[in-house]
Computed example of a mutant assay.
Amino acid sequence: MTTSIHDTALGRLEAEGRLLNSVLKGATKKPGRVGFRGDIALKFAAKMADEARPPEISSDQVIAAAHAGDGHIAFFAGFLLSFEYLALLADVLGDGLSPQGRYFVYCDNIDLSTRYHVDYGGATFHVLPIDEATVYNEILELLYLEKNELKRLDTAGKVDAIVDKAMGFAQSFPKISYEEGLKRMGPVRDLYANRPV
C-alpha cells in the first residue's frame, strides 16, 4: 500500500494549503517515506473575494521528507529570502520539528563566508548562505553527492538519496542565537529589482 502524505508530519501542511508548486508530493521509493519538492507558504496573502493569491512570504525550492507514523519531519532544506523568516518557518513547521531532524536553511541575506547552527523551536537549523545557486545544487555540494550519479534517478529517487545522506550529516558549525543572527544579517534583496517590465 502506498504511503499517503496524510500519514506523515507533512499532512498538516498539506491540509493547511501550504504545499505549493510541487514537483513531488507523495511516496518515494523508500517504504513509508513521503517526499515533497516545491514551495511552502509561510504567510498567506489577504484574500480578495475568491481569488487565490501567492503567499506574502514563502520558503522556496523546498526538499522535505517525513515518514508514516512519525509525527516529525525527518528532513527539510529550503530557501529563505531573509534570515528573519527562520522564526516564521519554525512556527509553521511547529510540532513537526524534532531534535533528531536534519534541517538546512539557505538564506539570501547572510554573509557568504558564514555557516551557523541556530536552535529554534526545539530543533537545530543548519543556516547557510546561498551562493548564486539552487538549494538542490547547494545541498548536493554540502553532502558530497555527485550530480551525475543522481541523473538517472527520478525526483523521488533523488529525494531519497539526499535524505539518506543528510541523516548522517554531523558537520559542526558555530552556534549562534536567533537574535544574534538578526544582528548579523544583511538587507533583504528586492527580488523584482532590475527585472525587465
Rank of each mutant, 00 (worst) to 15 (best):
V118S: 04
L112F: 07
Y106T: 04
A90Q: 11
H126W: 04
H117V: 04
S113P: 00
D95V: 11
D131P: 00
V118A: 05
T114D: 13
Y103T: 10
L97Y: 05
V127Y: 06
F104G: 11
Y120M: 14
V92G: 09
S113Y: 10
E84Y: 06
C107M: 09
D131C: 07
G121I: 08
F104A: 13
F104N: 12
T124P: 01
L128A: 03
Y116H: 15
L128Q: 03
H126I: 00
Y85V: 00
L112H: 06
R115L: 02
F83D: 01
I110M: 15
L86K: 08
V92Q: 12
Y120P: 00
D108E: 13
A90V: 03
F125D: 12
V118E: 02
G122I: 02
Y85L: 04
V127E: 01
L128K: 01
L86Y: 03
H126S: 12
A90R: 08
S98Y: 00
L89K: 03
Y116T: 04
P99K: 12
N109W: 05
Q100M: 07
R115M: 06
A87Q: 13
D111Y: 09
Y103S: 10
V127R: 06
S113E: 13
D91E: 15
L112C: 02
C107S: 14
L89P: 00
N109R: 14
R102P: 00
L89E: 10
L86V: 05
N109P: 12
T114K: 15
L93R: 01
Y116W: 15
G121Y: 11
G101N: 10
L89V: 03
Y103W: 09
F104D: 10
S98G: 03
P129S: 09
S113I: 11
L97F: 06
G94V: 00
V127T: 06
D119L: 07
G121E: 11
E84K: 14
T124K: 14
N109F: 08
I130G: 10
Y103P: 07
D131M: 13
D95G: 05
D131A: 14
Y85K: 09
V118W: 06
G94W: 02
H126K: 08
R102L: 00
R102S: 12
Y106L: 13
A87C: 01
H126F: 11
V105Y: 00
C107E: 03
D111H: 14
Y106M: 07
V127Q: 03
Y106E: 04
Y116F: 15
P129N: 11
L86G: 07
V127P: 02
V127K: 05
L112I: 06
D91R: 15
V118L: 08
V92T: 13
F125Y: 14
L128I: 01
Y116R: 10
I110P: 11
Q100H: 09
H117R: 13
A87M: 08
E84T: 02
E84C: 01
C107A: 15
L97K: 11
L112G: 10
S98V: 00
I130L: 15
G122H: 03
D108N: 14
A90C: 07
G121C: 12
V92P: 02
G96T: 05
L86C: 06
R115A: 15
R102F: 01
R102Q: 13
L128G: 01
D95L: 08
T114G: 00
T124Q: 13
A123G: 05
Y85W: 08
G101W: 06
D91Q: 14
P129L: 09
L89F: 05
D95R: 15
